[in-house]
Design a binder for these strands. Structure first.
Length: 582
RNA sequence: GCGGCUGUAGUCUAGUCUGGUUAGGACUUGGGCCUUCCAAGCCUACGACCCGGGUUCAAAUCCCGGCAGCCGCACCA
């Protein structure tokens, strides 16, 4: 299986391995080895290039430990849990709500554990497997809990997603962006989930790396100013309807997906295209990528539309590597309520709106003497009442009754004057909607390794794009002779000084060295041979087709620099320099 | 979390049933020889019984527990 071969090489050559191996390991944790760490950084930097440099979003960094209140507001403390119950006889563990639904047909989602326990007891629901008694219901929360401070009074959790770290300082971010929508903020970093039983290698980790962008937009305008740039991109879309009908996905132009209403908005579609381009840049081929729309049942209740970017694997089937959702205003609203901070944005109208309004104007000369000390309260209460209501009450009943702090007051028409007022509104405060592309970096790295892995007879290599390959250039002496070795070592050092990550290898024969270099996906190899000693030229070998060109030493650093940063292709270099026949 | 199977160098494996010399081999890796372009050959070195306890004169081998992996079930806001 391709998965096994790739993971073997990953382990052997220093990309990835499971953590804590000498203590027999712990499921759900992985180390990035020497090559893996470079690969990861390069992929993350490419992500930055896409989202920070080109999209103009800004990156922030927030703590991985969060106080309980923040995650209470986000809903994670209460809802990032499963209600569990255990059979006292066979010790099998079940989800309590599933057992009840199964046995009683009752929909009990969202009930408290005590209530679920009572239902189990009252209806005498038994273990579905052995018929034994069931324990009381407890919550299994997927967050890692910890304590903050020496006395451990304050509960904290490892963050289950990086997104919350962006919502919480929203007021400051809004000020940074000078109060104007739309704007985007990104965060890359670790997130933690204490999975019950992670058994899918790097696909299901307890500690993993996310790259998330939160794009805050005006809910009434979900167009994208640069949509034209992606309108002709094709997307493989597996819509809700197609899934329900059990048909396959369809290929559409981005433009079509919007006009046919398959994707809910232009801006969401734009994000899908961006994700597609990113994966393409990482060398993941089109055929193994599809966009799958969440079914209403699996979508978080607050989302309008959500698409998973999935990659096909031989080991795990289609796996989600990116989620792109329209989260609406759920998060900001919720943090607003819990923190009592106003997290809305003032949106100015193009034209100020003038509204003619009837206003109530109490006649204070009469009002004061009648109600004395209560007057201010009554007037305050009157401000919240529509003037037309008062007018109508006067017409229908001859007076207007109002209750303030439990006391009833009756106002006669002579106490109130009406006034036509002109009110100018320049805009309104709204909660922005959030478009969220959320990347699982570890899964992406796995996908990149899996899908760039290439086998040609005995030879295997990772067809990594040159700009993400961890080692960029290998330098070899053709044979292990002192004079050639000295030259090769010197070239390796010079390449490093030029910022190119290169390695020297003289072990075994030249063929073996190429093979070792290919296996870890080094895109180019420089070979020092006897001609080098005479005419100061070396050969540059291209990993993907083993073709070589002879290049003067004076050019070699700039040529390799351009190749490694993908500014030129090997084809271009072949056209310019002498090919080597071997 | 439950059940079944498995656990010997970096990798693949012999040995385990039937306890008994220094745990054997191949590939890989390091060093050397050779070698004028794609895993050749020769010499040489490094490297392992998952962990803990028990039985026994003696445990890789038998027993118990743990851990990890695989498969199935469950779980995956």
């Amino acid at each position: 299986m391709k998965n096994d071969e790739v993971m073997n090489i990953a382990k052997k050559r220093g990309f990835l391995w499971s953590s804590f191996e000498i203590y027999s390991g712990s499921a759900g944790f992985f180390d990035y080895g020497p090559l893996g760490a470079i690969l990861k950084n390069k992929i993350m930097n490419k992500w930055r290039d896409y989202y920070v440099v080109r999209e103009g979003f800004y990156e922030i960094e927030s703590p991985t430990i969060m106080p309980e209140e923040a995650l209470k507001a986000s809903g994670h403390v209460d809802h990032f849990t499963d209600p569990m119950t255990e059979c006292k006889d066979c010790l099998e563990v079940f989800r309590a709500d599933h057992v009840i639904k199964e046995a009683a047909g009752e929909e009990v989602e969202g009930l408290e554990n005590e209530e679920l326990t009572d239902i189990l007891k009252d209806q005498q629901i038994c273990c579905p497997r052995c018929g034994g008694g069931l324990s009381k219901v407890w919550s299994y929360n997927l967050m890692f809990q910890t304590v903050i401070g020496a006395k451990g009074k304050k509960t904290g959790y490892m963050r289950p997603e990086t997104a919350q770290g962006i919502f919480i300082p929203f007021k400051r971010l809004l000020r940074f962006f000078r109060g104007k929508l739309p704007f985007g903020v990104v965060q890359m970093g670790k997130a933690y989930r204490n999975e019950i039983s992670p058994r899918q290698g790097v696909i299901r980790l307890r500690e993993f790396t996310q790259a998330e962008a939160e794009i805050f937009v005006d809910p009434r305008d979900k167009t994208h100013p640069r949509f034209a740039e992606v309108a002709d991109d094709t997307l493989t879309l597996y819509s809700r309807e197609k899934q329900v009908e059990e048909e396959g996905p369809v290929k559409l132009f981005a433009q079509q997906a919007v006009s046919e209403g398959m994707i809910s908005s232009e801006i969401l579609t734009y994000q899908l295209c961006l994700a597609k381009r990113f994966l393409d840049d990482l060398g993941i081929p089109d055929e193994v990528i599809r966009f799958r729309q969440h079914l209403p049942s699996e979508m978080a209740h607050y989302a309008i539309d959500c698409w998973d970017v999935e990659v096909e694997t031989d080991r795990y089937g289609w796996i989600e590597i990116i989620g792109i959702a329209d989260r609406t205003d759920f998060d900001l609203k919720s943090h607003s309520e819990h923190s009592k901070e106003d997290l809305r944005v003032f949106i100015e109208y193009d034209e100020p709106k003038t509204v003619r309004k009837l206003a109530v104007k109490p006649d204070m000369k009469k009002f004061g003497p009648i109600f004395k000390g209560d007057s201010p309260k009554i007037i305050k209460a009157l401000e919240d009442v529509e003037a037309s209501h008062v007018e109508k009450a006067f017409a229908d009943e001859g007076s207007f009754k109002i209750e303030v702090e439990g006391k009833d007051y009756e106002l006669s028409p002579d106490l109130i004057n009406f006034e036509e007022k002109e009110e100018i509104t320049r805009g309104e405060k709204i909660f922005p909607h959030v478009i969220e592309p959320s990347y699982g970096i570890d899964r992406i790295i796995y996908s990149v390794l899996l899908h760039t892995y290439t086998q040609e007879g005995e030879r295997t290599y990772f067809k990594l794009p040159a700009d993400i390959a961890p080692l960029e250039v290998s330098v070899f002496p053709l044979v292990n002779k002192e004079s050639l070795a000295k030259n090769a070592l010197h070239i390796k050092d010079c390449l490093r000084k030029e910022g190119i990550i290169s390695e020297y290898d003289s072990s075994g024969t030249i063929g073996r060295r190429y093979a070792r270099s290919d296996e870890i996906g080094v895109p180019f190899a420089v070979t020092v041979d006897h001609d080098t000693l005479n005419d100061d030229t070396v050969t540059i070998r291209n990993r993907d087709d083993s073709k070589q060109v002879r290049v003067p030493l004076s050019d070699v650093y700039s040529v390799l620099g351009d190749l490694v940063s993908c500014k030129t292709s090997f084809r271009d270099v072949e056209a310019e320099y002498k090919k080597v026949n071997s």
